[in-house]
Structure formats: C-alpha cells, structure tokens
Write a protein that binds this DNA or RNA. Structure first.
Lengths: 222, 222
DNA sequence: GTTTTTGCACTGACCAGTCAGTTCAAAAAC
DNA sequence: GTTTTTGAACTGACTGGTCAGTGCAAAAAC
C-alpha cells in the first residue's frame, strides 16, 4: 500500500531505535519527557488503554515527535522497561556489593537489597506498578524483553543466596530460584501496598517490618 | 447522545446486574462460559486489548448474548473479579478454620493458607494473573470493586496474625497489615513464577520451599 | 407462551501511525 | 560579519481501520 514511502520509514525506524548513545542533548531530553509521561499513564491505565495522544500531550510535545523518537508505541514501552529495570538492577547490585565490602554476611546483603528495593519503589512507584502488571502476561509483543529484564534483577538475589549456600550460611535445602522469587514478591507486594494504602508511613518503618519477617522473628515473642 | 435509547438500556442493565441468584440454570451456564473465556483472554492480553467479539467467540456464543447477560464489558469484568476472589477467600478461610479445629497454632494456620493459596493459583492461574495485573492500578472503573475484594482476602491473613499476637504466639512488634501483605506477595509471586517459568514442579515442592522461608529456616544449616 | 439465544448489519467514537510542511541553530559561503 | 544553506527536530491535520455497543426479527430452549 505505501510501498511508495516504505523504505524511508523503515530506515527512520532503524536509525533511531534502542538507547541511542549518539542522540543530541535536545533529543535525549525529549525522550526523557516521553518516558516520564508514559510511565505514569501506563501505570494508571495499562498499555492498551493509554493513547499516544495522551502521552504526547502530557509530555508537552506533538504526536509526531513521539514517532520521530520511537518507532512505535510498543517500542517506546519496551525501551521504558529496559531503562527502568536497568536502574533497579544497578541499585540491587550496588547494595549487595557494598554490604560484602563492609564484611557483612548473606543476611545483611539480603537486608540491604530489601532496602534498595524499597528505595527504588519509593522513587519510581509508577514504574514498579507497570512492571508488575505486565510481567506475567503472555502473548505480548515485549514478552522477550520482559523475560530478559526480569532475569537480570532476580539473578542478583539468586547470586547472594547461592553464595550464602556455598559458604554454609544458608541451608543447602533452600530452593534458590523459588526463594529468590518469593523474596522479590514479598518486597514488591508489601511496597505496593504501602504506597497504595498507607503512603504516610516511613521507609524505615516498612523496612524493619520486612527485616523481621526475613529473619524469622515473627514467631516467638521477644 | 444516546438519549433516544437510554432508558431501555438502563432497564436491561438493572434487571440483570450482579451475581443474580434468580438466574435460570441455562443462563448460569452461559455466564460461566463467558467468565471462563474472558478470564484467559484478559489474563493474556489485558482488559482493553481484549475485544467483546473475542470473548463471545471463545465462549462459543453470539455477541448479542454477552450483552443480554451483562450490561457492558466492564460489568462482565467486575463480576468476574467478585466471583474469583469469592472463591479464594472462601478457600483461605476454610484452611484457617480447619487448622484451628485440628488444634494447630498460628504458624500452622499460615502454612495451611499458603497451601490453599497455591492450590487456588494452581487451579486458576489466569485469574490470579489478571488480578495481580489490575490490583494496583488507579483511575479505573472497577477500582472500588477491587479494593473491597482485596480487603476480603487480606483480612483473613490479618485475622490469623492478630490472633497469634493476642495469644502470644507471634511477637507484638509485628506490623499486621504489612506482614499480611508481604506474606500474600511471597506466595503470589512465587506461585506465578512457578507457573510461568517452571510449571513442571510439584505443588508440594513449591509449598515446602515457602514453608521453610516462612519459618525462618533459611539461615543456619540443618 | 415466555425466556434466552442467535446472526448480522449498522453506527459513531476513537486511535495508531503517516507525511507534507515548519522551525531554527549552526555551518558554509561570501 | 552578513547572507545562505542545511538538516535534525518537531508539528498537527489526516487516514484507514477497529471496536463497543445497538437493533431486531427469527429460532431454539424451557
């Protein structure tokens, strides 16, 4: 149908996909505005219910600009996912490494990562919301992106668990992937509940509640 | 806009809203088929990306039948939510009560509820998926339905925790709502990961991994 | 004979993606 | 140092298609 202009369009999409390092400062700023607009709208309404017009409007930009910067609505979304999870993964890794450097054990590392997770969710609640909402969907275009990105984050937790098992700090009977998923879930759901239903509480407060649960200090009075 | 036909539509919607007990058996069967079709499609694609035509087709029913049975697409979805969470809540409550009757303590009750949660997710993975995807969204039509329904389920866990605190089995320092949310999250995320990424594992397997985590038997070899 | 379902044509709103045209800052030409 | 050219970035009206919901007469089920 549009064979007439098919080639230019394709080239435009190719040239300007992915987290282009060669973007001008202006362009990078526009992309950032679009990420910020998209993340809150999609967190609130979901991907399909959010229109490109809305995203453009909230970013204070014309619709055409969205398509000048991203090949399509779903590409915008995929890059948003990669961007966000990159931040989270870096933060988790940093927490684990810092604890190790300070001579803490596996439990300290897990605790530090819980805090890093809470800090992240505190700062980017909309991203977290959107991530959870999309993670377990099947048959979606960005399925593979999500898998990769999920594995990056969970792998950090698994690494700490595995090391703990190796040096005898954790029981050999623990199931590393499942326990990692459960820990992530614990933090994720507790934090989302915190943000949604009792946002006035402090991060320290939430952190100490989760620490207690992690260390099995729930049963038994003290 | 549709004042011309506004009244008949409203009447039809009124007559036939909510989990009508007065429905004929035939009608109830049709509704059930529609729930089943809708739950998988929406879990896969999300609410907005799922069309009424698709739901009707998968249920093996004419589109008109959908609107004969439900006032709108979102009413169908809301009733689906209520229906599903009703099943879950009943199952959790039953587990807690059975344990209590058998003379078990709070930890046993929590453990039984973890299992009940896993059994539920094992049986209705699509519903769980869809529930998680919608729970923390804001600005949606069925927001209030979700809140009510969430509270029902979490309240069961909170009840067990509170009772444990009252009789001294659990520390008085635990934060009941937050700990309940964290426990729910632990089960939810672990189970969704199980179903999505290692579906071949047995329920018992997953259950024992979570039990261990609950009882703080992660640290310390044994 | 009443309730429920069917089949299908129809409408109007909405929306992803397109593209011809505009803007403007910096480079090139003079 | 002034004028001209260039091209990346941006704009917004427009298009082709999709979809929720309607209307209704006839058939099937009860």
């Amino acid at each position: 149908m549009n064979g007439r202009i098919g080639v230019p369009v394709t080239i435009r999409a190719m040239e300007r996909s992915s987290t282009t390092p060669g973007g001008s400062a202006r362009r990078e700023a526009t992309r950032q505005k679009l990420y910020e607009a998209a993340v809150t709208l999609i967190a609130e309404q979901g991907f399909s219910a959010t229109t490109v017009d809305e995203i453009a409007e909230r970013a204070g930009v014309a619709k055409g600009t969205v398509y000048y910067n991203f090949a399509s609505k779903s590409v915008l979304f995929e890059e948003l996912l990669r961007h966000g999870v990159g931040l989270l993964t870096a933060s988790l890794r940093e927490a684990a490494e810092r604890t190790a450097a300070e001579g803490g054990g596996g439990v300290d590392a897990l605790d530090a990562m819980i805090r890093a997770g809470l800090v992240f969710i505190d700062r980017y609640p909309a991203f977290t919301q959107l991530y959870v909402a999309e993670l377990w969907r099947t048959n979606r275009a960005w399925q593979s992106t999500l898998m990769v990105v999920r594995q990056q984050a969970v792998a950090v937790v698994e690494g700490v668990l595995r090391e703990g098992v190796a040096n005898g700090e954790f029981s050999e009977e623990i199931d590393v992937p499942l326990t990692a998923a459960a820990l992530v879930g614990m933090v994720l759901v507790a934090a989302l509940d915190w943000k949604s239903f009792q946002p006035e509480r402090s991060l320290d407060d939430v952190h100490s509640a989760l620490s207690r649960l992690l260390q099995g200090r729930v049963s038994g009075r003290r």
